[in-house]
Write a protein that binds this DNA or RNA. Structure first.
Length: 669
DNA sequence: GGATAACCTATTTTT
DNA sequence: TAGGTTATCC
């Protein structure tokens, strides 16, 4: 795109007051954001006074890089940050005012999970009907909506009567351990600014111009942060698309964008509707489908790219046939296209399994996005817990996690004893270890191990107290205490031992990288914060760059913001997409937005697949096509069977592929 | 303390 | 079907 269209230009020229930029899919919003920032600077706004907020680190990095392309080194003094990283920096400076330690650490999801389990079991709330994930979700939603436990008490629609009790305990335990979860970072920033107007004033003065990306995904807490920070001056520009709001289940409030003018009086609204990505056939379908939603702002995407080809809807016998068809179809498009031109999207992760299997059989290179992250590995969590405990002595949870890893004779009995002491004295485990009389009450072997453990921790704390040489310290440290080696040995008898050891090695390397990148000026605390706030798809990025050419497999959620020449959507069936539970919970419109996101990822071609029978929970059952299929206007779509969708190979090609097959068969095993 | 067996349950997961 | 968690046993 060489120059801006009139709407884009208008957005770039609107520099003061509240601005809502409704940017449809593929309408060049990032270009506008970047140009607008450059324009602000051109009009005399100091880069230090500009704050741009995104949701992901990746988005922040990209924005910064592109602004740098426009402004050069001036861009360095501007703040581009995620909501959470920004709040973390605010809280690191001021959170003592709210009774937390400034050296708080950040609770990861596995951490939250473990903590809520512990709380639920101590309240006797285990077994059927007590789902820790659900409780955690409720707490998260409450925090996102800035509700405290008392407010939850008065609510009628809580799924568990004990909700507010659990929330209160969870919060108490986190605070005792000087930990914040992700929602706390937002909630406490709001609380801080509300209770200390002079602190808020400081930030208002520092940042005169705000910009928020992916505005449709903001929750109530984030809205408060923006309202407070924008203050009376109200120089805030938000960019988003209500039709692409697909994170309601994480607390995103569509009302933030639908009622923007009510929250920010005098706001200007600009629509970007010219799309630079897709064919008009695709856009007309997407427009028609999304128009069926009630809660939205009117928009109509169009492009200058011509009509392009019709959308294809293919009906397959079952999920295996569907995967087989998808594989064959992609192969049939070769070699005119390359593997990386295709993305196969699905509603839920488990659908990937059949596809993966088929792709392996068919020897199609693929990349599964969003599969379990590096940081979910047991050994990595152990290693992080270890560092966490060194950094934050109050972290009882990490203590419990690694006090006996690798096994050093500190069993359930000893732990139970320590817990008793903790309940009586209200001191954390680390403090308890300072009392010799308590150690005496433990089994002899355990007491010995614990003393040793304590000594190791103390030594490590003094080693890590100063910034720099993180990596050296860590490697030496791990070697000295035999933690690293111990872990390696621990996994030796199993065949996954090598992988786990490699993972630990990689983790140490990431420490080294971090150290080097920041020229040895960073502390352990900063490293831990970085890995907590890092979006874990960073690893995916690396994979993607390395994997030169492969088909992408991912959920529709993961595909937001991406584009591919050809999109294949699998499992377009009732109860799968829209998801049964979403419909039951009254979220059909969000499912439709999700479908809209899927459609608008495609540049040239869209292929929608569904099966007639599918194995669900081990049982084969007859399934029906999704209602979304019937929402696509008939003139843009063609229905067919797998065989009709694949262009037959020419004689020459089929001869060739036969040759290949023979070669493969003879070389295999 | 650790291995094994039985048991349960299946959305999405930016930080 | 497959995974993750819990229960049980040695």
């Amino acid at each position: 795109m060489s120059e801006l269209n009139p709407q884009q230009q208008l957005a770039v020229d609107t520099l003061t007051g509240p601005l809502l930029l409704l940017a449809g899919a593929g309408t060049g919003k990032t270009t506008v954001i970047v140009h607008r920032i450059a324009n602000l600077v051109r009009h005399g706004i100091r880069p230090e006074a500009i704050l741009a907020v995104t949701f992901t680190n990746k988005a922040a990095r990209e924005m910064k890089a592109r602004v740098k392309g426009q402004l050069g080194s001036q861009a360095d003094s501007m703040t581009v940050s995620t909501f959470h990283a920004f709040c973390a920096s605010v809280l690191r400076r001021h959170i003592h005012q709210l009774g937390y330690s400034r050296s708080f650490s950040i609770a990861s999801d596995s951490y939250q999970n473990g903590l809520i389990r512990e709380i639920m079991s101590s309240e006797g709330l285990t077994g059927k009907g007590f789902d820790p994930g659900m409780v955690l979700h409720q707490i998260s939603m409450a925090k996102a909506a800035l509700k405290d436990p008392d407010q939850l008490e008065n609510e009628k629609q809580v799924p568990l009567p004990q909700m507010s009790l659990l929330y209160r305990n969870y919060q108490k335990r986190l605070q005792q351990m000087d930990m914040l979860d992700f929602d706390d970072m937002l909630m406490l920033t709001v609380r801080l600014w509300q209770q200390y107007p002079e602190i808020l004033a400081h930030y208002q003065k520092q940042y005169s111009h705000l910009m928020i990306d992916e505005y449709q995904d903001t929750n109530a807490a984030q809205l408060q942060i923006m309202l407070l920070l924008a203050g009376k001056a109200g120089n805030i520009a938000v960019v988003g698309d209500d039709d692409q709001s697909i994170y309601g289940w994480r607390g995103a409030d569509l009302g933030n964008i639908l009622q923007f003018e009510a929250y920010f009086p005098g706001a200007k609204v600009i629509r970007l509707e010219q799309n630079y990505r897709s064919t008009n056939t695709i856009l007309k379908c997407a427009n028609a489908v999304i128009a069926l939603n009630q809660a939205r702002r009117e928009k109509n995407l169009w492009s200058q790219q011509g009509d392009g080809e019709k959308i294809l809807s293919v009906s397959c016998a079952d999920e295996k046939a569907e995967a087989d068809f998808i594989a064959k179809y992609i192969q049939s498009q070769m070699p005119e296209l390359s593997w990386k031109d295709f993305a196969v999207l699905f509603r839920s992760n488990h659908q990937a399994r059949v596809l993966e299997e088929q792709f392996r059989k068919s020897r199609i290179p693929y990349l599964l996005v969003g599969a379990n992250s590096f940081y979910h590995n047991k050994e990595i969590l152990d290693a992080i817990s270890f560092l966490q405990l060194i950094q934050n002595p109050s972290d009882d949870f990490s203590f419990l996690r690694i006090v006996n890893v690798p096994p050093r004779g500190i069993g359930d009995t000893s732990i139970a004893r320590l817990r008793e002491f903790r309940d009586i004295t209200h001191q954390n485990f680390n403090q308890l270890l300072d009392h010799p009389e308590i150690l005496e009450k433990l089994p002899e072997e355990a007491a010995g191990s614990i003393k040793q453990f304590r000594a190791v921790l103390q030594k490590a704390r003094s080693e890590f107290a100063r910034p720099g040489q993180l990596f050296d310290k860590a490697t030496n440290f791990f070697e000295q205490i035999d933690f690293f080696n111990g872990l390696g040995r621990m996994y030796k008898p199993r065949e996954d031992a090598l992988r786990r050891r490699d993972n630990l090695m990689e983790f140490l390397n990431s420490l080294a990288d971090f150290d080097e990148e920041h020229r040895n000026h960073k502390t352990l605390q900063e490293f831990l914060e970085a890995i907590s706030l890092q979006d874990h798809s960073d690893n995916q990025e690396k994979n993607k760059n390395n994997a030169s050419d492969s088909v992408t497999l991912m959920t529709v959620h993961a595909a937001k913001g991406l584009e591919f020449p050809m999109i294949l959507l699998a499992g377009l069936e009732r109860n799968i997409f829209p998801h049964q539970r979403a419909v039951e919970e009254g979220n059909e419109e969000e499912e439709r937005r999700l479908f809209y996101v899927a459609l608008t990822r495609a540049r040239k071609n869209l292929l929608l697949c569904h099966a007639e029978k599918r194995r669900v929970m081990g049982q084969v059952s007859v399934v029906r096509p999704s209602k979304f299929l019937s929402e696509i206007p008939e003139e843009y779509i063609e229905f067919c069977k797998p065989a009709d969708a694949i262009k037959p190979l020419s004689k020459e090609e089929s001869h060739q592929s036969l040759q290949e097959l023979i070669k493969e068969l003879s070389s295999d095993e």
